[in-house]
């Protein structure tokens, strides 16, 4: 596994190579027409320790840019936006007991959903490559620098 890394203070923000990224903070790993979806390292670091993950169930149809669930952390609650269009085929049930997987392994065991895609050709226009996302991520880190690693 390799990553693009950006260091800020004592934090290292990672973007996993080979994934696609949506501007709202979810990544996509494509395997044929199946998309595995999760949140980025930046999003999990910014928002703090995950306490609850609520996701739409299998068989629900979703569209790119629409809500697929929400995450509550010790700092905030935020909605998750689907990076692709299709039907949910699997939910990561490990997150019920161990939501900290989202923090500890955002690109691995902390994945959220698997979606069978139906509109990838169009959806790709709104997804960034790993390197494109990395540039966006660096800017976001600098913009949000006062909030990173801090609770009041």
């Amino acid at each position: 596994m390799s990553y693009l890394e950006y260091k800020f203070d004592k934090f290292v923000f990672k973007a996993k190579k080979g994934l696609l990224y949506h501007e709202d903070g979810c990544w996509v790993e494509l395997d044929g027409e199946i998309a595995k979806v999760g949140i980025t390292d930046f999003l999990q670091t910014l928002n703090g320790d995950v306490a609850f993950v609520s996701l739409y169930a299998p068989n629900v149809s979703v569209k790119q840019g629409e809500c697929i669930g929400d995450i509550e952390t010790m700092k905030v609650s935020f909605e998750l936006t689907s990076p692709v269009t299709g039907k949910i085929i699997e939910k990561n049930n490990d997150l019920d007991e161990s939501p900290e997987l989202v923090n500890n392994e955002p690109y691995g065991a902390g994945w959220l959903l698997k979606i069978k895609t139906t509109n990838m050709e169009e959806d790709l226009k709104n997804l960034k490559s790993d390197e494109q996302y990395f540039e966006v991520m660096k800017k976001k880190v600098d913009e949000e620098s006062e909030k990173i690693g801090k609770e009041q």
Binding site: K7, K138, S145
Partner: peptide, 16 residues
């Protein structure tokens, strides 16, 4: 200032 004071390292290794 934000360009001159960037605290990030994008060398790719994650190391300082």
């Amino acid at each position: 200032v934000s360009n001159a004071s960037g605290t990030g390292c994008s060398c790719g290794s994650g190391e300082i």
